[in-house]
Design a protein around this nucleic acid. Structure first.
Lengths: 158, 158
DNA sequence: TTTTAAACCTAGTAAATAACTAGGTAATTA
DNA sequence: TAATTACCTAGTTATTTACTAGGTTTAAAA
């Protein structure tokens, strides 16, 4: 499991879909504007998300993106795995007898950690994240200002 | 908490010290040879480890490195934090009201995950790792071949 | 039917980092 | 005094991140 800002961007964008997708598709231009992520970078992230059926694209004017499944059926692990492809913590390529028939000494460590992180992220869905954050009421973009989910890079504290 | 091969190299090297440090200091040349990590890169890693008192250097012929504390008093988190300096998962710089007085929606998520990973790695010491791996008997480099702890990059499976 | 707004696609680029190389100096032992 | 080690500094290459620039399709709206 790899953890980077890339995966966090993807989670942020998916959260934006969750919050604002109830009345029509959300455009990447909107997400780009609100969350401060470049449009073309979002397109790349969404290409990966789409290939895993986590989002559905609608072309043409009035188009945009929907969640590919219900928000309570998409885990954070799903999202991160889609954009940050799995990188083994070990160098063994995943085979269990990497060291002359037995597993190398650190193998179990990184394996366990990897599982730990994965199950943590898999246990949290987009729906739960919205509930937990208590920000469900901010989702209606027709009546209120859209809201940034993550601080912008340029306004982040030093 | 950042997780990269850098931190894994450091853990591997520290494990080598743990296994082979019982009869005199271990040289970086030995670790470099056995674990397949470049000498100069090891020197950089050990500069960081030394600054955190995780290792003690002994200069001159017959010199090398010892563990800075007992193996059961050094956690994996200690090692990784020494070489992979902490990078916030959030962009908030750690302040709790990054989003107009309230915490951003993903803040708690990354915060929780970060804590999860940290406490996992903090709960495991070098000593435990050696016991768990059941490789304690391989530590005597005078009588047996030294053993690679992690597969070399060039021999790793494709 | 034309225009327009969006997804969708490809290639390239700048910045950061990881991992390494090269070439030293300083301390300690034999 | 010579050898061996830690210790230090300044580069270099490869990879990845995040972005830019330019397209093409699709479908709604004018």
């Amino acid at each position: 499991m790899r953890l980077s800002t890339k995966g966090r961007y993807a989670v942020t964008a998916m959260l934006d879909l969750t919050l604002n997708g109830s009345d029509g598709p959300v455009t990447l231009a909107e997400i780009s504007e609100t969350q401060g992520i470049s449009l073309s970078y979002l397109e790349q992230l969404f290409a990966a998300l789409r290939s895993k059926q986590l989002v559905k694209g609608v072309r043409g004017p009035g188009g945009g993106y929907y969640l590919g499944r219900e928000a309570d059926e998409i885990s954070i692990a799903d999202i991160i795995c889609a954009v940050d492809e799995w990188v083994e913590f070990t160098r063994c390529g995943g085979n269990r007898d990497c060291q002359d028939g037995k597993r190398c000494l650190t193998h179990n460590l990184w394996d366990d950690l990897s599982n730990e992180i994965f199950s943590f992220l898999q246990s949290i869905t987009l729906a739960e994240l919205v509930e937990r954050g208590g920000l469900k009421e901010h989702g209606c973009r027709k009546e209120k200002e859209r809201e940034s989910i993550m601080p912008r890079a340029d306004t982040a504290a030093a």
